[in-house]
Write a protein that binds this DNA or RNA. Sequence first.
DNA 1: CCAATGTATGCCGATATCGGAATGTGTCAA
DNA 2: TTGACACATTCCGATATCGGCATACATTGG
Lengths: 104, 104
Amino acid sequence: MAEPRRREILDALAHQERSVGELAELLHVAQPVVSKHLKVLREVGLVEVRDDGRRRLYRVDSRPLREIHAWAGRYERLWEERFALVDEVLAELALESPDDAGRQ
Amino acid sequence: MAEPRRREILDALAHQERSVGELAELLHVAQPVVSKHLKVLREVGLVEVRDDGRRRLYRVDSRPLREIHAWAGRYERLWEERFALVDEVLAELALESPDDAGRQ
DNA sequence: CCAATGTATGCCGATATCGGAATGTGTCAA
DNA sequence: TTGACACATTCCGATATCGGCATACATTGG
């Protein structure tokens, strides 16, 4: 239930930094709700804050997202390698016994 | 609280498919716990199952991870562009008024 | 200093999630 | 068919999280 809200916030901050009130208006939720989610995102390091008078401007910190990027990319590569390996094995089998090629 | 467990499971499945019992032993948790997490991961589409006799072999499905990869990559690019823009502006300022370059 | 604005925090009830224990379902082996 | 094995599902209590509301804190303007 929380994840979608947080993604909304991150998406809203993707292109520009925004104040808490702006975010609350964009997401059509109460201000305290936004503040709480921002607190979590801050603690996890996904967003950074900057004081601007009585407002607080939030922006995303791309470094943790880069880690997520790398993390997801690891699996992607691993399974691409695996699929490539399967292809190799199938190709070898086809060479060794052409009659069995393509069988289930 | 759930996320770390699920990441553990995904990491355990990163290189090879495993049975529920194997996962339970690797993570030092009870079998029902593993089954429940696997159910969630299945519903979200992060893992796939294959029946092998009385065992069920799980493996990761890299396609959703590819989406995560793309999602995180979006932010990465956005902010790299932003930093590049800042660099450009600074460079232009340095050209227009060399005396001000490097000031706070 | 005071009032207004912008934000954060504390408390609340509702809901979701976790892990544990017991139980249900399906498959193999004898 | 029966018992053993592998796994899934259900029920339970404890804990976490969400959103709403009221309120506290901080900054600005007068």
